[in-house]
Design a protein around this nucleic acid. Sequence first.
DNA 1: CCCGGCGCTGGAACGTGTTTCAAAGCGGCG
DNA 2: CGCCGCTTTGAAACACGTTCCAGCGCCGGG
Lengths: 214, 214
Amino acid sequence: MVVEHTHPNLEERSRRIVETSIELAERGGFEAVRLRDVAAHAGVALGTLYRRFRSKEALLVAALEQETRAVAQRIRQRPPKGADASERVVGFFVIATRGMLRRPNLSRAMLRATAAGEPVLAQKVEVFHDLMLRMIVSALRGESVDTGAEEISEQERLVGDLLNRVWFALMMSWAGGAQSQGTIAEQMRASVELVLARSDRMTIAQTGTMEATK
Amino acid sequence: MVVEHTHPNLEERSRRIVETSIELAERGGFEAVRLRDVAAHAGVALGTLYRRFRSKEALLVAALEQETRAVAQRIRQRPPKGADASERVVGFFVIATRGMLRRPNLSRAMLRATAAGEPVLAQKVEVFHDLMLRMIVSALRGESVDTGAEEISEQERLVGDLLNRVWFALMMSWAGGAQSQGTIAEQMRASVELVLARSDRMTIAQTGTMEATK
DNA sequence: CCCGGCGCTGGAACGTGTTTCAAAGCGGCG
DNA sequence: CGCCGCTTTGAAACACGTTCCAGCGCCGGG
């Protein structure tokens, strides 16, 4: 009843399923995303849901990708401002973190889904990491995010990947309650400054005086 | 029938339960750790298992902690050798990574368990991170791992934490199949060198020529 | 020797992710 | 128009994590 006919289904239905999952996750986190409920709210049968998404985790990873693309869109329109690379990159992570913390239940659910370990899923997770990397590199350069991928230099990839992973691990910690927004921002700032090693006033390695905070 | 009496039970039983979980996880990964099986093999009832461990994930996190302590023990006896901090730290991560990859199913299962998101569990996960951090700092210094915690300097904590998180995120990626042993080692080496910024032959930041690959 | 408490046992029961399947809907093609 | 192949549906079934509970055995205290 009240079922759309046929043409735009594949797309439309998948979208509605993911949307529903997001709503449920926002409200009650990972466990609240009961697939029967998702199917019901999305107006499809369980079997249909499973035809599109191999597992609950796959569903949430799809949500993660969608949300990340949305963030990328927003970042593209209003890139983090800042005079030097450090400021911009830190700015980006602040935005990204705020985006996650705004809907903690959803974010926790999506993060958890990334740990499923199933190879096919992990590929989708890598897409997420790629999106993040692109945004980081853009912030590094001070450009707007472009869709091109291959022009990332060795050096940019190294730094970007590193920061990306640090941030991801921080989010994982946060998901368990081990980090607050403040400490996340702090640690990201410290990491960025360490890695970008602002050429002005900075000695290297163990001997260096680094003031991480502020 | 064939039930031990009482005294050494709490300890002994928990140990046996964790041990069994490890065996099952080694053999078949996360899903193979069926709690009914664990209970049966460990010779306890399901209820007993649940009295000690609140969830499947808690069980695997306990396993993670135990295995990590074992690694710490081994590291303490044979610390990674190396002339400078970079070499030693890279050496440590190579050892740690090899340790994980030796039993991929188990490692994947334990990693997945860390993502459960339950606060109580997350605390245990933090213990694991702490253990790792201590080993990293020891490698940095070139000392043997000591149990003292508080003498870690700001600088050491920053660098150690950062590398710890990078490695963890890499392991998470590996668990999904996205990283091979080689690329992990490569990336850790590059990260260590970037962060430790070997004073010899190394320029900083975007301009630097960094050859990550061997 | 008996009692009461306590943890353990065995097993049932419940919820939810996942699978399976027959019946039904729908569009294109002859 | 009627058949074919496709997907979707609805519902049942299964697996496993988790919870619950009644009975039992062991223990220390009376």
